[in-house]
Design a protein around this nucleic acid. Structure first.
Lengths: 197, 197
DNA sequence: AGTGATGCTGACCAAATAGTCAAACAGGAT
DNA sequence: ATCCTGTTTGACTATTTGGTCAGCATCACT
């Protein structure tokens, strides 16, 4: 099922518009214009707005999955794994609008369920990894769940609600973007501090 | 300008509907039904949807301001201040939908500017407080800005994107709500760990 | 009772917009 | 040339929805 050139253009245009305007704010006509085709053509490729949206939403969730393999055992020290995961997660979140995902997840919570079902076979990969480190006495002896929440929060929120944070830091958009780039390293260090003995 | 009973009912109904459905998803008819008045009456009190929305948005931002006084000097130890601030912030965020605020801030970034202008007179209160502690050698010698970002992230994100976190933790809604209650204390401890020497 | 002000409403309108459809078009195979 | 298949479009429809308006109800005051 190789996507045709037109289909690719549609997906690119739709991603742009959905991220900017949300599902409810997005207009099929605008997406069609952005893809340089007619609205009728757009409906020829994707029968409904909902179907087009689902396709894009699926691509999003898929982009996060590869990062989970970070927590598989390997030769790296756990500090290195944390740095790698934080860096990867922040890159994914800065590239694709997480606010958009949360928004649509709130609008229709059922969207995540089929996707979660696959992974729900066992506990979260980070939780398992931390428990192993904990058993070996390599990290602080504490419940890893608040750590997981803090880690995701620290990685996700800065790209999700930049306006409010930029306001708190008294920065304009440009300054904030620059700050967030260096923040990735700081965030990893803070998380390591939370975990070490 | 004492708000009448009807006006109060409208604001309550509008808050409910705006939080649940967002600005674009909210329907004036639904808000009117929820307030048990006609749609025409609703427009009698608030001429446009935008004006009604602004009123509610203003009430939100106002509810966060009192917390900022936490960082004024006082007799409390800094650890106590952190615990107090985190607890307060998480309560505010759990009571009112932060996702809704971020969403609308993204839709119309100009919303925050007039409100920010008031506070923009000086640096952020936490930053100032931390710098004073740092000068006295009471906390870790580090840039407080990543700490501020991490603090806000840790407090805000769990109530902003509960579905995704609940998924990661393999919890249902009820379990997650219970978890978040106890998380407030853990979050404060984690933040204290980030700041202490 | 009369009068004016305020609160409230049903009926209506104009604009926006997702989705449809018949017809045109392009390109390859026969 | 003819046919067939997949692609593209302009024109159209049905519905939703924010907002308006003329008029009704209620109450205070004279």
């Amino acid at each position: 099922m190789e996507p045709t050139d037109t289909e690719k253009r549609i997906l690119q245009a739709a991603t742009l518009v959905f991220e900017r305007d949300g599902f409810l704010g997005a207009r099929m006509q605008v997406i069609a214009d952005e893809a340089c085709i007619s609205k009728a053509s757009l409906h020829y490729y994707f029968r409904t707005k909902e179907k087009l949206f689902d396709r894009i939403f699926d691509d999003y969730t898929a982009s996060i999955v590869p990062l989970l393999s970070t927590w598989e055992d390997g030769t790296d020290e756990w500090q290195e794994k944390v740095r790698h995961f934080v860096k990867g997660l922040m890159r994914v979140f800065s590239e694709s609008s997480l606010l958009f995902m949360a928004q649509e997840l709130h609008r229709d919570p059922k969207k995540l369920e089929p996707r979660m079902a696959k992974r729900r076979t066992g506990p979260n990969a980070f939780i398992l990894y931390y428990e192993r480190l904990r058993a070996k006495g390599l990290v602080r002896d504490t419940d890893p769940r608040p750590l997981l929440v803090a880690m995701q929060s620290i990685c996700a929120y800065p790209s999700m609600n930049p306006k409010m944070l930029a306001g708190s830091l008294r920065m304009n958009n440009k300054e904030y973007t620059a700050f967030i780039t260096s923040y990735a390293d700081d965030a990893a260090d803070l998380l390591i501090r939370m975990m070490q003995k």
